[in-house]
Amino acid sequence: MTASVDRKVTELDGPPSLGPLYARAAAGAALPGGGGRDLPAREIVRRGVSVEQEHLADYALACGFGIGGALPLTYPHVLAFPLQVVLMADRSFPLPLPGLVHLANRITAHRAVTPDETLDLRVHADRFVAHPKGAQVDLVAEARVGEELVWEGRSTYLARGAEAPADNPPGTDIAEPSTPTGTGAATWKVAGDTGRRYAAASGDVNPIHLHPLTAKAMGFPRAIAHGMWTAARAVAALQGRIPDAATYDVVFRKPLLLPSTVELVTERSGPDWSLAVRSARKPDKVHLTGRVTPA
């Protein structure tokens, strides 16, 4: 899937602070002619990342995971996400960070990762291709313990109205998971402060998630839930039912405005699970579909 390229490695010695990065990216986006035409051949690396118990506990609480011997399937994403932002906020990145829409996400855990393991994280961008509404790009993350690849993530973002180089190979999108339509397995009353909570736990302080006012400034009627929060909350409901080594695909559909009441629908087929998060009032309004398969 990924062409082998030599990438310039930027090593971070600590977690980047995302607030200033967002601010800089916002300022940069306002400038004309920012960014290159194609993806930068860069890789952001942070080695020796150890899990902070407090941070993990806040995350688990915000997403509905239990605190136990293994990291939640989606947790390494929040460790890798700042690295994504570093890459995307850089002036060399061809797409403006503000306004990027998270379209889909794939996470593969190759085994259970325990909180006491030290992770090396790498993030690069890949598959910069045309999308009917603009251009999309994958931010690819991996986590290794020593040499062993333990976790991978691929986040697909859309930049509305942007253009991708026509000659880039299209690659394969994450296949749309089927949408289960049965009775809801769970009803969630998603509180108004869910975005702030997840922002605090994940570091994703994108203003569209934080407050109705900041969301309005970005063109949303109310704050919206982080897609990865919804994804995490959904897979948290399957804790104990899915294997440690699993691939979790999600496709984000309608934004989940805060607060709201939604339903989780799950459906099992052999070892595979499909799931959907939909509006409790209007079951046709689907916020997310997902699929968990053994890896």
Partner: peptide, 15 residues
């Protein structure tokens, strides 16, 4: 309500 489903017993029973 059931912790895992967020539904009250009544809602479950209604189903």
């Amino acid at each position: 309500s059931e912790p895992r489903t967020g539904l009250s017993m009544g809602e479950h029973a209604a189903r």
